[in-house]
Each structure stands twice: as C-alpha cells, then as structure tokens.
C-alpha cells in the first residue's frame, strides 16, 4: 500500500490521449522519480495530483482518501505540496515574507482573519521562516525582494516556501532545471537532507544525474503510459526504456 495510489488515470485533451491508464504506487518515505521524453505526460500527471487538472477517469488516492474534486488549497492543506518548475514567487514581498506566507497557511489553515494582529507578534512563524531561509542559504537576503535574484536563488526560495510547510508528499517538477552544476549538487544535497525527515517525494526530472542520485524507484512514462517501473539500477539497462526514451543510446 502506497501513500499515493494512482489507478487507471486517463486524461484526454480533445483527440490527444495525454494519459492512458496510468498506475502509480508511491511508497511512504521514498523518492519516486517520473522520467520520460518531452510530451510524455509527466507534468499532466502532476497537475492531476494538485487539482490543476481533473482526470477523465481513474482515481488518485492520498493516504486513503481521494484527491480528486478537491480545490488546490485543500490539497495543499492535506499535505501535498508542489514545487513549481518556473519559480512562482510573490515578487513584491521580501524573501522572508515569501516564506512566512506558506508558514502562516500551514498554521492557520486556508483562511483566518487575523486582521489586527501585528506581523511581528508571530515570532514562531518568523523563526521558522528564517530557519528555512538559512537552510537554503538565503538568510542574508531576507529583507530583499525577489526582483534582483538569480534564477537559481529563486528556485531555492521556491523550495524553502514548500519545505516550510512540512509537506507529507512533495512534488518536484524539474527542481534543478536551469541550474548550474554546483547549484544542482547543492539542491540534491538539500533534497537528500529532507529525505531524512521521512518526506515522500515525487520528482520529475530530465537530468539523469539528479534522478539516479535521488530516486528509490523510477517510473518511465512514454506517450501517456507507464512503460516500466523499477529500481534505478534495473532502469539503466532496460531495453524498452532505451528504445522509447533514449532513442537506443546507452547510458
């Protein structure tokens, strides 16, 4: 029994079969990578988990209850948190405020009208956010706005915004795309560190270096179907994978 169970999920866009009978079992505490060529349906699948898209048929169960039909904020409140591929940041707010907002959402729920209390009175939220900024190495810039940040820094802020919520299931959509090699390695280390906290992770990634250094299990998606699911060492040598995904080249 996995923490996330996906059963026979189908999603069509007009005549295009984006997802075709997708099944997925993600074990609690594991890192599950989803790889596949462009257009294989990886992002579509992820969007079905967070309420951005609704599958035509099939079920998505998280911790024994369905995610389908829930609003995005309800899915987040349940503990499923997505790290966006292009960093989506509150650009007019300071870095610290950017991390405090998800922390507030985690503590206070989807809506709380604490209209007349001073932000400074929520010390524990501030500390939690500061701690998270330190962990991703952005603590010195806490009062800056994100407008002058590098892309790599934005992605680290994005990660901090998601991690501060103590997610149960973290969905990472290409967490290292556009990063330098050094930043990529730093991100891998960071993600491994969170792994120690028992957070389940689903990673979509093109960078095989990242996939093979993080993943416990890998599902290979091609043309909307899972063609193989196995442990990394077996994926490397799998002929079907090399055929569909790598065009026959050897890893």
């Amino acid at each position: 029994m996995g923490i996330l169970e996906v059963r026979d999920v189908n999603k069509n866009f007009g005549g295009l079969k984006a997802l075709h009978n997708v099944n997925l079992d993600v074990q609690e505490g594991s890192v599950h990578a989803i790889i596949g060529p462009n257009g294989a349906g990886k992002s579509t699948l992820l969007n079905c988990f967070i309420g951005r898209l609704t599958p035509d048929t099939g079920s998505v169960m998280f911790n024994g209850s369905t995610l389908l039909g829930l609003k995005p904020h309800e899915i987040n409140q349940a503990g499923v948190v997505r790290v966006f591929q292009t960093p989506e940041i509150f650009s007019e707010l300071s870095l610290l405020e950017n991390v405090m907002i998800p922390a507030f959402a985690k503590r206070d729920g989807a809506f709380k009208l604490n209209a007349f209390s001073d932000v400074a009175r929520h010390g524990e939220i501030r500390e939690k956010a500061m701690h998270m900024l330190e962990e991703v190495g952005l603590a010195n810039d806490r009062d800056k706005t994100s407008s002058s940040m590098s892309r790599g820094d934005k992605r680290r802020l994005e990660l901090a915004m998601c991690l501060v919520q103590d997610p149960v299931l973290l969905l990472l959509d290409e967490p290292t795309a556009g990063m330098s090699r050094a930043d990529t390695n730093a991100t891998i280390d960071l993600l491994k560190k969170i792994g120690g906290r028992g957070v389940t992770k689903i990673v979509i990634e093109h960078d095989m270096h990242v996939v093979f250094s993080l993943a416990d299990r890998i599902s290979v998606l091609a043309q909307g179907t899972v063609i193989v699911e196995d442990i990394p060492s077996k994926i490397k040598g799998n002929e079907k994978v090399q055929e569909a995904y790598l065009g026959g080249a050897h890893l």
Binding site: I50, K71, P72, H73, N76, Q77, V81, R82, F84, E88, I89, F90, S91, E92, L93, I101, P102, A105, K106, G109, A110, F111, M161, Q165
Partner: peptide, 13 residues
C-alpha cells in the same frame, strides 16, 4: 496582488 494562483497552491483560500 502579486500571484493569486500561487497563493492557492500554497494552501490559502
């Protein structure tokens, strides 16, 4: 004001 959609995915209604 800056990003309402992102706020939804942050667990805020």
């Amino acid at each position: 004001k800056t990003n309402q959609t992102r706020l939804n995915y942050t667990g805020v209604n």
